[in-house]
Simulated assay, not measured.
Amino acid sequence: MAVSYNRLFKILIDRKMMKKELCKLADVSPSTISKMGRDEIVSLEVIAKICLTLNCTVDDILEIMPDSPGNETDKKAR
């Protein structure tokens, strides 16, 4: 399973908010936002903090991508 946080970064652009500002308001570390920039999985606690800060839902900030045979995050490849 792969996760894409492109929706989150689009919201930040639309609201003219910098990642640094999101870190401060949501009380999440810059390294966590960097992980999201690389589409790595982060904890549900982080997702909840961001959703509460931005007043949005999980679907608004992330998209779960189905597994594909060549997908690096496929469980068989681990």
Rank of each mutant, 00 (worst) to 15 (best):
L22H: 09
I33E: 02
D14S: 11
S43L: 05
E63D: 14
K76A: 08
V58P: 06
A48K: 05
D27L: 07
I13S: 09
S43R: 05
I61R: 01
I47M: 15
P69D: 11
R15A: 15
K24G: 10
I13F: 00
S29H: 10
I41M: 06
M17A: 12
S68A: 15
V28Y: 03
I61Q: 00
V58N: 06
V3L: 06
G70E: 12
K10V: 10
E72T: 03
C56E: 00
E40N: 12
A2H: 05
N71T: 11
M65Y: 01
T73I: 04
E21D: 15
E40D: 13
D27I: 03
S34K: 02
M65S: 04
M65H: 03
A26R: 03
K20S: 15
S29N: 07
K24S: 14
L12A: 13
A2N: 08
D39A: 06
I11A: 09
T32V: 07
I47K: 10
M1W: 14
M17R: 07
A26G: 02
T32P: 13
D60N: 07
A77C: 08
R7I: 07
T57Q: 12
T73V: 13
K16W: 07
K49Y: 04
T53W: 01
D67Q: 08
I47T: 08
D67N: 13
I50A: 09
T32H: 04
E21V: 13
L54Q: 00
K49S: 13
I64V: 14
T73N: 07
R15N: 15
C56K: 04
S43I: 11
S4P: 06
C51R: 05
A2F: 05
M1Q: 14
S34E: 04
K76W: 08
R38L: 07
L22S: 12
E21K: 08
I33R: 02
E45G: 01
P66Q: 06
L54N: 08
V46W: 03
M17Q: 12
V3A: 06
T57P: 10
L8P: 00
V58K: 11
